[in-house]
Design a binder for these strands. Structure first.
Lengths: 117, 117
DNA sequence: CCTATGTATTGACAGTCGTGATTTCAATAG
DNA sequence: CTATTGAAATCACGACTGTCAATACATAGG
């Protein structure tokens, strides 16, 4: 796995001088990076990623009691993962009687999807 | 923030019976979910996400000594983040003399990008 | 009211993560 | 060779994560 490198030949620096010219770095990226990292972090668990996958395919149609048996995890653990997704802004929930229905927040994945693509 | 829900009316289950019909779940998703979660997890830190961003824009052109001053972090910490990215398969490195040049592995982001998009 | 059911929260625990100080390795210049 | 520089590894430590058991909360039925 090789990539074409356009390498400037470099020599040992003369002791005391900075190693290299600092790459210009747009500070405006920071907030965006933090937002996207929050989303990525929430997706950084296979369970949560599968939860999002299921919710995207069955938005508002599956209650938590249907999600639990999919993962061989306890109900509190699934509830915890849903909470993590909710706090990251990826999902929302509606309650209908005893049951809670989750859905992926529209557009929540858009920014990072664009950046990745 | 509301989503159109197609809810089947549900009634309290008759005690002893399973809550709901289990949603069919393709087991083939599991490995894919784990691969994508690994990538997402590696991107789940603002520093690493920005590292990837810089490397995508300057592949093979920036040495580690140029990356360090961008983040107000110690050199070992930046090196650590690069190692995390390397172990997740997101980046590779080439060494030219004293300097190490990193690049984003082509295609490493493709799978999750497609899934997100 | 009381009871049962679905969901959320709390407490506890082992494991992992992000960071820096220090050390070690690698490679160049003299 | 020695000295110096860039990069990686090691060690340590506080903070956070994923999990479950137990508990609490919310709602519906009787």
């Amino acid at each position: 796995m090789s990539v074409d490198l356009a390498l400037q030949p470099k020599t040992k620096r003369p002791a005391g001088e900075p190693c290299c010219e600092p790459v210009v770095y747009p500070d405006v990226e920071r907030e965006k990076a933090e937002r996207m990292a929050t989303v990525a972090k929430a997706l950084g668990d296979p369970i949560r990623l599968q939860l999002v996958d299921v919710l995207r395919k069955h938005a508002g149609q599956v209650c938590v009691c249907e999600l639990v048996p999919l993962f061989d995890l306890s109900q509190p653990t699934v509830s915890h993962h849903l909470k993590v997704l909710r706090e990251a802004g990826l999902v929302g929930s509606e309650r209908r009687g005893l049951w809670a229905y989750y859905y992926v927040v529209p557009g929540a994945l858009a920014e990072i999807a664009v950046w990745l693509g």
